[in-house]
Design a protein around this nucleic acid. Structure first.
Lengths: 250, 250
DNA sequence: ATAGCAGCTTATGTATACATCTTGAATTCA
DNA sequence: TGAATTCAAGATGTATACATAAGCTGCTAT
């Protein structure tokens, strides 16, 4: 299949990076655990050179932490770290929205965002929302946030947002699936979608302050989802990202 | 001397990273220029393995850009990129100040910041400000910003601020030296120091919004310095960071 | 019994040889 | 003359061997 072709074509470095990332996010490698190069070599079946590069990449992705004396360990996050990362993303996306508004995003460039908004509207309209719709929402929501970020037309800002969102629990869709298990599911989805509507409106009307504020608040929905999910403790399996959380949870 | 000892003790990777960074920031490697591993090997006199690691590190530092087909080139920045990076830093430092205020930084933890503030006051008091005082200001100012960042007590945020500030033209002291060549020098210094005073006051009084706003505005002083320096075109040599600027300047 | 030291095991840091792919230049054909 | 193709030179990707440093275990001495 073409899958095998693509697997063959990608570099060993990337292959190792993917394999190690999966093991970290799935909890097979636990927070605080040291991960030696040879161990990583055994896991990934590639030699030390690409393994080492993969480890360095995962370090600046934020999944690993360098040990002063050499080597790496799986990074551990507190609930506070996660909440701060979400607030951080909200702040950066707020800045992106403000830039888009102040710099006068053209009607043409707003088009894809509006289409995405309409697609999301379709998904949100159902009640109750099917699991498939939730899954589709996650994809479309990620697209919405990506489009919004690009609308800032600021490479340095886009770069930073991408880096923050690389942490799975800080990404825009990190906790959407958690909602599906909550009774407040549909309500929260509607509120989030209203935020989307508002930010587009604000950008269109050049209301920079409003656009920034609503994106900050929007990120706090994710924080709310996280807290609800942790308190209810239902379907935590929907959130592999929480494998990185220190002791208390899981 | 101990210098030779320390030079011997640091790793080849770090040595290569420092050497290459110097060459980039000093303009010996020009923006857009491809930098091959062998070339880097010749420059740094270390083998390809540590050179490669150094290149990867410089990439996520933001000084290099990966070429899709492999290898790296020196990243080029527009004036807009630089201004955006400064605004970005201001936004993040604003968030840090707000966190410090909202979370109630203890009187004890505020102490070092206040001492630093007093030291800066001493330096600013002279008129005209000597070159040595400017240089001391740069150091002390960097310390002030570092202390403020740490006061947020948020590892994820601290990490992001450090990453943004790694770009020399986005760092808190990036354009202070440019002032020394400007007629408005002392005035700008006084204004900046007043910002410092205000943010400490705001944090002490738990005024999160005020603390955030003043840090955002504070960063815009750097943007002002940049614009003035570029327009006047005097003493651009004081700003090695501008070696990364695309064509028009320099 | 505990603390400290010695030696060994294993980790990471580095260099280099080999394989593969990209790129540029030259030549040939239309 | 221009464009396309092929070949060569050089680049990056990968593996592995070697050097050095860290950490651990076990033994000895107090």
């Amino acid at each position: 299949m073409s899958e095998r072709d693509s697997e063959r074509s990608i570099s060993q470095t990337v292959r190792a990076q993917l394999a190690l990332r999966d093991m970290i996010l799935s909890g097979q490698l636990r927070p605080g655990e040291r991960i030696s190069e040879l161990q990583a070599v055994e896991i990934t079946s590639v030699s030390r050179t690409p393994v080492r590069l993969a480890l360095v990449r995962l370090e600046d992705e934020g999944l690993l932490q360098a040990i002063p004396s050499g080597g790496f360990m799986v990074k551990a996050f507190t609930e506070r770290d996660i909440l701060d990362s979400i607030e951080l993303r909200g702040t950066l996306e707020g800045l992106a929205a403000r830039f888009a508004a102040e710099r006068g995003a053209s009607a043409r460039s707003l088009e894809p965002l509006k289409e995405c908004l309409a697609d999301l509207d379709q998904l949100v309209r159902q009640d109750p929302v099917s699991v498939e719709a939730f899954s589709a929402y996650v994809t479309m929501n990620a697209r919405f946030h990506a489009l919004l970020t690009e609308l800032s037309a600021s490479p340095p800002l886009i770069r930073q947002i991408d880096r923050v969102s690389a942490l799975p629990f800080a990404s825009p869709s990190g906790f959407v699936m958690a909602q599906s298990a909550l009774p407040e599911a549909h309500q929260i989805l509607l509120i989030g979608q209203d935020h989307h509507r508002i930010v587009v409106d604000a950008i269109e009307n050049r209301e920079g302050g409003r656009a920034e504020a609503i994106m900050r608040e929007h990120a706090r929905l994710a924080a709310r989802n996280l807290r609800l999910a942790l308190r209810n403790r239902t379907h935590l399996d929907l959130l592999p990202a929480l494998a990185l959380l220190q002791s208390p949870a899981q």
